[in-house]
Amino acid sequence: RRRLPHVEMMMGTGNLTELTEADSGGVTAILLGLCSELGIRNVLTVQVSPHTRRTIEEHDAARRLMFAAAADNALPKGYGAGLLQLHDRAPYPSTSREIAETAAEVRDANFRIATAEDGIHVFNRAGHHVARDAFSLFPKLGVEADGAHAFYLGAELAKAETAFSLGKRYAQDDPLDWGCGADRPEEDKNRLREAGHTLRAKA
C-alpha cells in the first residue's frame, strides 16, 4: 500500500471467517477496520460454513460502521449495534433496587419479568422473586392450574435466562435483539404496537 497508494486492492476475508472456529462477526469487524485504514474498497467473501451463515449481513454492518467512524475521525462505536450479537453494552436498564421499588408498587396479579446484575426478577402483587436459574423460579409462581399462563411464563423466563447468561438486554414480550445475527421481525412504524401479553386485560 505504501508503494502503490492509489491502486485499487481487494481483500479476501473468507480464509479467516470460514477457517477460524470463532463467531465471525468480530473477525469481520477487524478485517473491515483494516480495509478502512488501508483504503481497500473491494472485499471478496464466501458463505459456506454453517458458522458463517450471516457473514454477508456482518460484512454489510461492519463496512457501514467503519465508513462512518472514518468519516467522523472517531472510534467505531455509537453508530449501531448490528455487530453486538451476543452481548450488549448496557444489558440492564434497571438496577436491582429500582426493580424492587417497582415491584413494591404493583397491585395486580400479572407477572412482570426483568433482569439485573443479580439475576432474573419476576414479580406481581403476591411477591418478588430473584434467581439465576429460571427453573428454580417456577415453583414459586403458583400457576400449576393455569396452563396458558404457565406456558407464557416458561417461554419468557427461558428468554430472560438466556439474556442474563449472555449479558443481553431483556424486555418482556419482545424478542431478543441478535443484531445482524438474525432477521428482525418486520414492524409497521406507522401503527402503534399491539399490547403484549402482560398488558392485556385478564378475563
Rank of each mutant, 00 (worst) to 15 (best):
C180Q: 03
D174S: 15
S96F: 14
R97G: 07
G82Q: 03
L192S: 11
L31M: 10
T13Q: 01
Q85V: 06
A150P: 05
G25I: 05
L84F: 13
G25R: 03
R2Y: 10
H128W: 15
A131R: 13
T115M: 03
E156R: 01
N110I: 06
G39R: 14
A182T: 03
T162W: 07
D177I: 05
R125C: 08
K140Q: 15
D174N: 11
A150V: 00
D133G: 02
L153F: 04
I40H: 08
L176S: 04
K168G: 01
I40M: 04
R1Q: 13
V130M: 15
A116W: 03
A182N: 07
A70F: 06
E21D: 12
T13R: 02
V106T: 06
L65I: 11
S49T: 08
P5H: 07
H87P: 01
L137K: 06
R191K: 15
D88C: 06
H129W: 08
M9I: 01
I120K: 02
F164T: 01
L84S: 10
R97S: 13
R193I: 00
R63E: 12
P185H: 04
N15F: 07
C35E: 09
A70C: 02
Y92S: 01
K202M: 06
R3D: 12
A163E: 03
A100G: 13
Q47G: 05
T198S: 09
V122S: 08
